[in-house]
Each structure stands twice: as C-alpha cells, then as structure tokens.
Amino acid sequence: MSENYGMLHGLWALTNRELKKWYKEPVILLLSLVQPILWIAIFGKAMNFAKLFTGASLNIPGLNIPKQVIDEIGAIVLKQTFGTTDYFSFLAVGMLSFIVLFTSMSSGMTIVWDRRLGFLNKVLTTPVPRGSIIMSKVFASVVKSLVQSAIILLIGVLLGLTFNFPMLSVEAFAITYLALFLLSIGFSALFLMLALRSTRWETQMAIMNLLNMPLMFSSNSFYPISFMPWWLKPIAEVNPLTYANEVARWALIGVQPTVPVYMSLIYLAVFGVLFSALGIILSWRFLSS
C-alpha cells in the first residue's frame, strides 16, 4: 500500500461531508437565520437610543433649549456611550458574533449524531487521525458561521446599517472576518470538546441553552461594558465575544476600541488555537473508549 496518511489526512473529505449535508438543506440554513434577523429587525429598530433625544418633544419646562443643542447633547452622550450615534449599526454589527456563536455551538450536536447513527464508529476504524475528525467539524462549523454572518451583515445593511470605515473597505471586511473566523474556531472546538463522549443530544441542547444567553449578555454585543455592574465587567473582559465585537465595530463602523485591535486579535487567536489544541488532544483520549 502506498497511500499517504499525513497529519491532516481525511480532513478535507470529512469537512466536505459536513458542508454537503448543510448546503443541500437550505431550509435549515434559513431557519437558523430567523433568530438573529428578529434581533436586528425588532430589537435593533425598536431599541433606538437616538430617539431618547430626537423624540417628539424633549423639553424642560421653563427652559427654552434650542432643539439643536439637545441634538448636540444627544449625539455626544451616544458617542461617549456606544462610540457611535447609530445604535442600530452598533447592534447589527454585534449580531455578527452572535450568529457565529450560535452556529459554532451546534457543532457539538453533529458529533453526538455521528456517534448515535454509527457513522463515528465506522470512521474510527479507518486510518483517519482522530484530530482530523474534530478539526473537520471545526472547519465545517467555521464555514457555516462565516457564511451566515455574511448573510446577517447583508440584511443589516438592507435594514439601515451604515458603514464608517477607518480604512479601506476591503481591509475592514478582512479584519472583521479574521476576528469572526478565530472566534468560530474557538467556540466550535469548545463545544465539540464538551460533546466528545456524549451520546445524548438532549445534553447538548441543555448545554447550548444554558450557555448561549449568558455568553451573549455578558459581552458587549448589546451594550458597552461601561454599562455593566462591577461584578459583570471581569466576565465580559474574558468573554471572546467582546473582542470580536470590538474588532468588528472598529473596522465596520469606526467605533474607537477600548483595547488595541491587534491585542483583541491576539486574544482571539489564542482562544482559537488553545481550544483547537485541547480538542485534538482530548479526541485522542476520549473519542474511542
């Protein structure tokens, strides 16, 4: 036999399998977009902080403040709080990491299904390195996440997201998607790790439901960290979603970052590499029993 089995042997074939199952079922793709779209369309449009100041008649009795002054104050308050006067754009960009989180979370489910349906047992008898089994699911999940976030971005634009690039638009998108890519690798690997030995999809569902909202609300996806009580801030500061949002908001709508962008990217890279490495190591031990 002269077949060559490298470290990454089988990675592409298995990734391709996952993706084939995905793009051949567009209904599932569309359904998974419903939730973030509702967030943008309803929450983003209704929770419009700019209206606090431009609402019909903001006036203090006895004082005759010109509307222009109120508008100025409003703009400054918004700018200082959100880094932009456009809360809708702030939220819409935050939704990109939201959809990445959601899609990456479900990667753990696929390994549970493969185990239940026998496919995993079969693959384990082939010369495919265990690490390839995990990483193929990570990469498939990354591709899904990025495609979905691109669709969300497009919908955001259709609903009124306005870009404010601090650089070339191509660079801005590249940096945004680099951040989302790293975020997705980390979360996919994390949730796959949690599912390595699981045979019950109910457990995975419970983990997903348990973690998705806390992860969202303990990040800066909806509001800046400065809004948070003291005990929540440290959690938000280790939450990778925070850093993906920082990068994306800076690159796409020009929000001044609270930490240097390169630091955010390094943080996300460490997150992605660390959890991938852990996932591969654990798969050697725990994929078979």
Partner: peptide, 12 residues
C-alpha cells in the same frame, strides 16, 4: 470493517 449498526450517512 462492517459493523452491526448501519454506519452510512443517511443524508448522502
């Protein structure tokens, strides 16, 4: 190896 359970991917 041909296992007792069905191992083919039903979606393919």
């Amino acid at each position: 190896v041909v296992l007792q359970e069905y191992t083919a991917d039903e979606d393919l």
